[in-house]
């Protein structure tokens, strides 16, 4: 805090800087929004006009029908919700085993679990696509969902949380005759709600935004997710080019809403991931 600059002036300077940077960060989003709420000819002839005049929902509506975005949104919601729930369940179970149970070879199994995190999707996609194909799961929900459940991130996050629970809680419960499942369900899971929330949020975002895997196994319109449907819109002819902006608005709206609601949890979850993962 230099004494020679008046306090108020510094504050004005900082706000100006913040506003300027915000404008730069938001510009692409703003530009897309403006395009999306223009009429088709307006967007094509005057892409440079960035002020909200002559707003219309035509483009968004057209994108919705032509891109069959309703169907795609539905698919994305189904896949993301099912994956999120299943990942939370599977991670709760394995995290519990690694935190509260004793069994021979625990250390080795744990290291093996963690090691799978190093394997990038790029390596497994080729083979997994063939597996899915041989099971007849191309263009199907189960093809989108089941392979996405193989992840150790949630186990690590929850295990970290479980290990912080006092050991006496489990001991007291075991004297009362509380079995593993009941303890997990009635004590460990409720006490880990913030961590579970962050895990759910990450999983939902990750699944919603997934591109490589769906692009490899979904070709029909009935099962494509919103991300794949967007790609379809961008492939339209030049005079329908603005349709993609409508699609972007539709695809991003649910996620932005979630972000605004759960922002704190996201920071907390990322802290755990960043410091301990």
């Amino acid at each position: 805090m230099r004494a020679d600059v008046p306090h108020g002036l510094r504050r004005v300077g900082r706000y100006s800087l913040l506003a300027l940077v915000s404008a730069v960060v938001l510009f692409p989003i703003w530009a897309v929004l403006m395009q999306a709420f223009k009429s088709g000819p307006d967007a094509l002839n005057h892409p440079e006009s960035l002020l909200p005049t002559n707003l219309t929902l035509d483009t968004v509506r057209a994108a919705w029908t032509e891109g069959e975005l309703g169907r795609a949104l539905f698919n994305s919601v189904v896949v993301a919700v099912v994956v999120t729930i299943c990942v939370m369940l599977v991670s709760l179970l394995s995290a519990f085993a690694f935190s509260f149970l004793q069994f021979p070879g625990k250390g080795v199994v744990f290291v093996a679990f963690v090691a799978t995190m190093l394997v990038p999707a790029e390596v497994t996609v080729v083979v997994n696509r063939r597996t899915v194909e041989s099971w007849g799961w191309l263009n199907s929900y189960q093809g989108l969902i089941i392979p996405s459940l193989a992840s150790t991130f949630g186990m690590l996050l929850l295990r970290q949380m479980f290990l912080q629970l006092p050991k006496e809680l489990r001991e007291a419960a075991s004297l009362d005759g509380v079995g593993n499942m009941r303890f997990l369900w009635e004590v460990a899971a409720p006490l880990s709600r913030p961590t579970l929330g962050a895990l759910g949020l990450f999983t939902f975002l990750g699944t919603w935004n997934a591109y490589l895997w769906p692009s490899q196994i979904i070709k029909d319109r009935d099962h494509r997710t919103i991300q794949i449907a967007l790609e379809g819109l961008s492939g339209a002819q030049i005079n329908r080019f603005n349709l993609v902006t409508g699609g972007l608005v539709i695809a991003s709206l649910p996620i932005f809403a979630m972000l605004v609601v759960f922002q704190r949890q996201l920071v907390r979850g990322l802290t755990a991931g960043a410091v301990k993962g």
Binding site: P166, E168, L169, E171, A172, L175, D176
Partner: peptide, 8 residues
């Protein structure tokens, strides 16, 4: 039945 130091 057991009462723990930390009450648990």
């Amino acid at each position: 039945a057991m009462v723990f130091q930390s009450y648990a």
